[in-house]
Computed example of a mutant assay.
Amino acid sequence: MTDTGRAIDLSVEVIGDVETVWRAVATGPGISSWYVPHTVEERAGGAGVASFGPEPEMQIAGRVAVWEPPHRIVFDGGEGVGGLTFEWTVEPNDANTCTVRLHNAGFADGDPQYDAMVDGWKLFMANLQLHLEHFAGQTATSALPMVMWPVTPEEGWEILAGGLGIDKMPDVGDRFDVAADDDTKLGGTVIETGPRRISLLADTPAPGTAFLTSEDGGGFTMVSVWLYLYGPDGAAIAERDDAGWRAWLADHAPQSD
């Protein structure tokens, strides 16, 4: 396949043998556990759908352009369809680890979404590491509430952190507990902090991972409270808490002048 335009190249080292890591990056249940909900027909030419939200327009259809298990898969928009391509490779290392590489190509020069995509992929690939370290072989159900506010990312983070009453930059290892309402709670251990981001290894409302972020969306700011929940009650809790966090974000939207 021939690249066109600008590309993103990222890699992470993850825990797991090549077959386990392959399932995480090339199957619907695997990808859904650390990115967004996916369905994947596991064959060359198979259909794939990524769900970025409940609305019909947020269901993004694509194709498995290359299927070379357990080392390489490429997703694109379909035969003769332009746009972005996503190539994932899995390289086994020693000591039960693998290197996962992403080559995301097809950006036009000056694409305003490029920098936001780089930041987004870094977060998701960090979540892939957490998935394989703590929950390998399990499947998460995600709740992905996100709003787009006409403020700067710094202002978005002020609103999010201030509304929840939290430190804007807690220490790694700190206990973290917040609530959107009496039933919608989030708690766990801070495992990473960065500019306008807190990452958690969650134990409330279920075992999993969680991310609070305020990111530049190229002309607007994307503010998110994202959960990936495991266990027998994970799916039901994710559905419940998705609604709770969406309502909280809507209630805290900045007022226009």
Rank of each mutant, 00 (worst) to 15 (best):
E133D: 14
D182P: 06
L132W: 13
W157C: 01
D174T: 05
M146Y: 13
E154G: 13
D183R: 15
E154R: 10
E155G: 04
E158I: 04
D115C: 07
L164E: 00
W149Y: 07
L164G: 00
D183P: 10
Q129R: 06
F135L: 05
V172Q: 03
P153E: 04
L144H: 02
F124N: 06
E154N: 12
D167G: 00
E158L: 11
I159F: 06
F176A: 12
G163H: 00
E133R: 12
M169T: 08
G156Y: 02
Q138N: 12
D177I: 01
L132Y: 08
E154Y: 06
V178F: 00
G162F: 00
L164C: 02
G120K: 12
D182K: 07
E154W: 11
D119R: 10
W149L: 14
N127Y: 02
R175D: 08
Q129C: 09
E158H: 10
T139I: 10
G156V: 02
D177C: 03
G162Y: 00
V147P: 05
L144D: 01
K168P: 04
I159R: 15
D167L: 00
A161T: 13
P153I: 13
V178D: 00
G163F: 00
M125G: 03
M169I: 09
F124T: 05
A179P: 04
L130C: 10
D181L: 13
L123W: 10
H131Q: 10
L132K: 09
D119P: 03
E154K: 09
Q129P: 07
V172E: 10
A136W: 09
V147R: 15
Q138V: 11
